[in-house]
């Protein structure tokens, strides 16, 4: 009888643990989803009532006018970061996961990445300003902004690439090896293909982080009411977060509207990136084991 009671008690305890675990996960979910919705809605509610499409087509005039220069500037910055940081980050990630698993170069790269990742972005911006804008006399410029932004997100891309590659089942690698594929060929044709969704997702998230960054750009990109030119040096570049930040601190309603508009455009951009990430994942996962 005592035995029976004991089993009963332990069953009850186990059930209570299971229930509280479920409640805990739901709570955590709410804590993530709630603020995300609140943030997006907050921006939408403030920006949509006075939204005019010509914001996208007219240039800024300081605290009034449109945001065309900033939209194009942010897109150019993101594209540049995609090329520079994307290349460096993905290659570094491949190196870490495939080539330098236990070697010294791996330890060195990993240390460097951790330092970079932990670096406050405003300090990075300041260093960029001193070294590039002043030191190399580049002035506020696209190149300085691109390099500093890229430096900021490279660790993220490298790490997400590395972890995506590490999650590729050993099965695939062994199968490729046993067929007589060289390790480079297997990497390109089998391993990367399987890691691609993870790599692309990391890249796009890094890009939205770059697009939403302000501090390093204040120091390196400067500010301008004009569209970006094709010159890499000596020409400042406009970007959306500049307007979110400066116009919000202006006293006029018109300036606040510009600030909200810039915020809305950024949010839409970020959501678009996430949607693209999803689509790419879904497309490349057609032949993957997880989406039977």
């Amino acid at each position: 009888m005592a035995q029976v009671n004991q089993t009963y008690a332990s069953t009850r305890r186990r059930r209570a643990a299971a229930v509280s675990f479920r409640v805990g996960t739901l709570l955590a979910l709410a804590l993530v989803v709630g603020p995300a919705l609140w943030l997006v809605l907050g921006v939408v509610v403030r920006a949509v009532p006075h939204w005019r499409w010509n914001v996208l087509t007219t240039l800024s005039q300081g605290t009034s006018g449109g945001l065309a220069n900033a939209v194009v500037g942010t897109l150019v910055l993101m594209a540049g970061v995609a090329v520079i940081a994307g290349t460096i980050g993905v290659l570094t990630g491949i190196h870490l996961a495939e080539l330098a698993t236990s070697s010294r170069s791996g330890a060195l790269a990993r240390g460097a990445i951790d330092i970079l990742a932990g670096f406050p972005s405003i300090v990075l911006g300041y260093v960029g300003y001193i070294a590039l804008c002043v030191g190399l006399r580049w002035g506020f410029s696209l190149l300085a902004a691109l390099l500093i932004l890229s430096l900021m997100v490279v660790p993220y891309i490298a790490k997400s690439t590395e972890s995506a590659l590490r999650q590729v089942p050993t099965n695939y690698r062994e199968g490729a090896e046993a067929l007589g594929m060289s390790s480079g060929y297997a990497l390109r044709r089998v391993v990367l293909r399987s890691a691609l969704p993870g790599i692309v997702t990391g890249l796009l998230i890094a890009l939205s982080v770059a697009g939403g960054e302000t501090a390093p750009l204040l120091y390196t990109a400067g500010a301008t009411n004009n569209l970006p030119t094709f010159s890499l040096l000596h020409q400042p570049v406009a970007y959306l977060t500049y307007y979110v930040w400066t116009d919000y601190n202006q006293p006029s309603d018109a300036a606040h509207y510009v600030s909200y508009d810039a915020a809305l455009i950024l949010v839409v951009l970020v959501l678009a990136m996430l949607a693209i990430a999803r689509i790419i994942v879904a497309r490349t996962q057609r032949h993957s084991e997880t989406s039977r």
Binding site: Y172, G175, R193
Partner: peptide
């Protein structure tokens, strides 16, 4: 191999 290991293609 023991476990079938088709590639993701």
């Amino acid at each position: 191999f023991q476990r079938p290991n088709p590639f993701p293609m």
